[in-house]
Amino acid sequence: MAESGRGGRSLLRETIVVVGAALVIAVLVKTFFFQAFSIPSGSMNNTLLKGDRVLVDKFSPWFGATPARGDVVVFKDPDHWLDGTPEAPQPHPGLGHDVQSVLSDVGLMPSADDSYLIKRVIAVGGDTVSCQAGRPLRVDGVVLHEPYLYPGATPCDNDAVGTVVVPKGDLWVMGDHRNDSADSRTQRRAGRDGGFVPVADVVGRADVVVWPVGRWATLPEPDTFHQAGLPRPGDGVAEPIALATLVLLPLSGAALLGRGRRRRRGRA
Rank of each mutant, 00 (worst) to 15 (best):
M1S: 06
A2C: 02
A2I: 04
S4T: 12
G8M: 11
R9L: 14
I16F: 14
V17E: 08
V24P: 05
I25E: 15
F34G: 07
P40A: 08
S41A: 10
M44H: 06
R53M: 11
R53Q: 10
S60L: 05
G64M: 03
A68G: 13
G70Q: 08
G70H: 12
D71Q: 06
H80I: 04
W81A: 03
G84M: 05
T85A: 00
P86K: 09
A88P: 05
Q90K: 15
P91C: 03
H92I: 13
G94P: 03
G96S: 14
Q100T: 04
D105I: 11
V106G: 13
G107H: 06
L108T: 09
Y116I: 04
K119F: 12
V121I: 07
V121P: 06
V121K: 10
A123V: 15
A123H: 13
G125L: 02
T128Y: 04
T128S: 07
Q132C: 01
R138S: 01
V139Q: 05
G141R: 05
G141D: 01
V143C: 00
L149M: 02
T154Q: 07
T154V: 00
C156D: 02
C156S: 00
T163W: 04
V165W: 02
K168P: 01
W172S: 05
V173T: 13
D176Q: 04
D180S: 07
D180E: 05
S181L: 03
A182T: 07
F196L: 05
V202F: 09
V208R: 05
V209Y: 02
V210R: 11
R215Y: 06
A217T: 08
E221D: 09
P222E: 01
T224W: 11
A228I: 04
P231T: 02
P231Q: 03
G236H: 15
A242C: 01
A244L: 15
L251V: 10
G253V: 03
A255R: 07
L256V: 15
R259L: 14
R261F: 11
R261P: 05
R262G: 08
R263P: 07
R265S: 01
G266K: 13
A268G: 14
